[in-house]
């Protein structure tokens, strides 16, 4: 009888070992506002030239999707535009080009004011912003994101500081700062203070709306910088 009691006790412990540690689900609230953008904005178009505008649409989790959009010009006599975004600079003046998407939730819109002149001039290719922590870990500093020859250069300023206590800190570009599911991984963070930079190949300013700092081992967001 004593022996049976011993084995019963041991069996309980072993059963606990066998059934312990099942992988379950953690849910994350990753809903974001859908975004519609004109991908290649210009300040001016050379008269009597054409220009193909392009659109990008990110859905409610920040994933790029194709969408049936509408292109409009406020003054077709100055700049005409086709349903596919092909613009013609017809006469001197200015026209507001509007990109619209009537989604189920609301009408999304982006605009650009285009002048018709002697040359075609792309919009500024640099955006400044600020990295802020969204956790208890130190993360702060100014950034500049610059488009150079089809690549992006992310430059962190002298006032940049990040914790070195956190394992597996990575930096990303994304349209959903709550998740790295659709994010572009730039690099593991190796610099924890002062100015430094990263190069992101084959990317443009319109591709992303956030810089995201994320701890991979903990699978948790550490901080972000909004690209505006």
């Amino acid at each position: 009888m004593k022996r049976i009691q011993h084995w019963q006790s041991i069996a309980i412990v072993l059963l606990l070992a066998v059934f312990a540690g099942c992988i379950k689900d953690d849910f994350i609230d990753d809903r974001v506002d859908p975004q519609l953008r004109i991908a290649n904005k210009v300040d001016s178009l050379a008269i009597n030239t054409s220009y193909q505008f392009e659109e990008v649409f990110f859905n409610n989790v920040g994933l790029a999707e194709s969408a049936e959009v509408l292109w409009k010009s406020s003054d077709p006599a100055v700049v005409s535009i086709t349903p596919t975004g092909l613009a013609e600079a017809l006469a001197p003046g200015r026209a507001l080009i509007t990109l619209e998407l009537d989604s189920n939730e609301k009408v999304l819109r982006d605009t650009v004011l285009v002048s018709v002149g002697e040359t075609t001039v792309m919009q500024a290719s640099s955006i400044n912003g600020e990295i802020v922590t969204t956790s208890s870990y130190v993360l702060e500093g100014d950034f500049t994101l610059t488009e150079i020859d089809g690549n992006l250069e992310l430059s962190l300023g002298d006032n940049y500081r990040a914790t070195s206590a956190l394992p597996g800190l990575f930096v990303y570009l994304t349209n959903n700062s709550n998740s790295i599911a659709s994010a572009k991984e730039i690099a593991a963070v190796k610099v924890f203070s002062g100015a430094h930079s990263y190069t992101v190949e084959n990317s443009s300013l319109s591709d992303y709306s956030y810089i995201l700092y994320y701890c991979k081992p903990f699978n948790v967001k550490v901080g972000e910088g909004k690209i505006q």
Partner: peptide
């Protein structure tokens, strides 16, 4: 654990 989207129910990680 799995990291699951509350929006799409997809397993993200």
């Amino acid at each position: 654990n799995n990291l699951v989207s509350n929006t799409t129910q997809d397993v993200l990680i």
